[in-house]
């Protein structure tokens, strides 16, 4: 066992060199790397923490906005429903009004057409009545409607002469009105009857195209008459009694067409 001092010195030098080399190439890089990695980890942890806080804040903001948007949406939906209901009620009311108005107009139109139909039917009935009366008088009594009318008025004149005088007061003119000019023989018969029963009165003949066929003797405020209108009105009353809805049904049928 011996000590080689040259080797000792060389080994001391080697060891010192090794210390320097390992410090340079092992310890410092490793420890600095560890420190850097720990710093990097700490930095990333801080960044992660900051990101987490930011994400939580964003989540909170998102939830707040979601809640607000949901409440706004609910309010908007409720408002829209309310507006829709109001609009629906308005439209329904308007539709009901329009329907009622149209029904009223329809009823008015229906009534108007019914009246027109009744008037036409009355006119046709009157014309038919006149023609039938004329035909019946001609075939059964060889007489005319005008002559029969004059005789009927003359018969009334006999029975109501006193009433006519009282109703005439100071008036002394009597007017016989017909639709067509009365034939001269009939005028003479009527004038003769007036002379017999109302001698103080002057008879004047007149025509009225709007008047119904027949004769109207106007004496002051009273009158004696026979016109087809009275019969037509009686016919209409009869029809109304027996066929109360005839005019309406006819009018409705016309309206339906």
């Amino acid at each position: 066992m011996s000590i080689d001092w040259i080797t000792v010195i060389a080994q001391i030098a080697n060891f010192l060199v090794l210390v320097w080399l390992l410090k340079r190439f092992l310890y410092k890089p490793i420890l600095n790397g560890i420190d850097a990695r720990e710093a990097e980890i700490a930095r990333r942890m801080n960044e992660a923490g900051a990101a987490r806080e930011k994400a939580e804040a964003a989540e909170q903001t998102f939830q707040t906005q979601t809640t607000r948007l949901q409440s706004e949406r609910d309010a908007a939906v409720a408002e829209a429903l309310k507006a829709t209901e109001s609009e629906r009620d308005s439209l329904l009311a308007e539709a009901r009004d329009r329907l009622a108005r149209e029904q009223k107009e329809q009823q008015t139109q229906l009534e108007r057409e019914r009246r027109k139909f009744v008037a036409r039917m009355q006119q046709a009935g009157t014309q038919t009545l006149v023609e039938l009366t004329r035909k019946a008088l001609h075939e059964l009594a060889d007489d005319t409607l005008e002559a029969a009318t004059v005789r009927h008025v003359m018969a009334q004149l006999v029975t109501r002469a006193d009433d006519l005088v009282r109703a005439a007061g100071s008036e002394r003119t009597a007017v016989a009105t017909t639709r067509e000019p009365l034939p001269e023989p009939l005028q003479a018969q009527l004038r003769t009857a007036m002379g017999q029963h109302l001698p103080d009165f002057t008879l004047r003949f007149a025509t009225d195209p709007d008047q119904s066929p027949g004769l109207v003797l106007q004496v002051g405020g009273a009158q004696l008459s026979w016109t087809v209108d009275s019969y037509a009105e009686a016919l209409q009353a009869l029809l109304d009694d027996r066929l109360p809805n005839a005019g309406s049904s006819r009018g409705g049928a016309l309206h339906d067409r």
Partner: peptide, 16 residues
């Protein structure tokens, strides 16, 4: 061996 191994291991040492 020590220095060479250290050099090989630590030659590309980056925190990332």
């Amino acid at each position: 061996v020590l220095v060479g191994g250290s050099l090989l291991v630590t030659r590309n040492l980056r925190p990332d």
